[in-house]
Design a protein around this nucleic acid. Structure first.
Lengths: 138, 138
DNA sequence: TCGACTACACCACAATCTCAAGTACAGCAG
DNA sequence: CTGCTGTACTTGAGATTGTGGTGTAGTCGA
């Protein structure tokens, strides 16, 4: 790790965090609501438990998700987003918006969806999804 | 690669692209304007040329950046964002915005800025919008 | 004429991610 | 009551990805 030289910029730091593999996927899955470990693993789809455990630990340390152990022996843990985690919805929305507009490979699917009015966007989650660009106006 | 099963969701795809190491940093550097290869390497700060070349190739294929060879022998290539690449500004802004509000480790620095009411949050973009991120200081 | 600079390609090494199995127990079908 | 499934992880080995350093052909400033 030759890091530790650019702690000066918040954007740099958060990119550092968000670009870790699966992080955004995990957050996205958790935006649907709190989940257990394996449940989350399935929701994310394709991540393996080792990585997932590592990501969750990091995200917890960063204050993005919170872990609640509901019972130790019939193991039951609940992961959910903190306030800061929910705020990442804006980022995910921005990405989703970009994807729909500019990503090559899904222009086909996008064209399909474009026929419908925007309100009919299929992947909608959460009540706050009303304005896709929330904090990022344009 | 055992992927290729979630091709149904544009968000998934673009996350897949954007989470690659250095991609967002590269885009961020290019938002300042077109750059040459080594110049870009310095602007990003810390990426090595092998990785950078790989990322740029991929980004070009995805239609995010465009590569213009201005002269072969005094090697001079210009990388710049396409329309789709510039649109990523929204994503970067969203991340920056989130970082300033919620990222723990820069609350210190953020507290400084937090003195202002949130409404005053400078969602700056446009040509000269590079104050906080601009030239990577090193 | 001596570096310094340009845009990469190559290769070995290191960090990161994944696979598969294993743990310790509860709940349910049979 | 027995056996299977599910839950939340951990461990160690193996695959994948990223990195460092060096080399190349040629031009420019000192």
């Amino acid at each position: 790790m030759s890091v530790a030289k650019h702690a000066l910029c918040p954007v740099y730091d958060s990119i550092e965090l968000l670009q870790e593999k699966w992080v955004l996927h995990i957050v996205r899955a958790l935006l649907d609501g709190p989940r257990g470990f394996n449940e989350l693993s399935r929701a994310v789809g394709g991540v393996n438990t080792t990585t997932l455990a590592a990501r969750l630990e990091r995200l917890e340390r960063e204050g993005v998700v919170s872990r609640t152990v509901e019972s130790t022996m019939p193991p039951r843990t609940r992961y959910e987003l903190t306030e800061g985690g929910v705020a990442l919805q804006a980022v995910i929305d921005a990405i989703g918006d970009w994807a729909r507009t500019h990503l090559k490979r899904c222009t086909t699917a996008a064209a399909h969806a474009a026929a419908d009015p925007p309100a009919a966007a299929p992947a909608e989650r959460g009540p706050a999804a009303s304005s896709p660009l929330g904090a990022a106006p344009r």
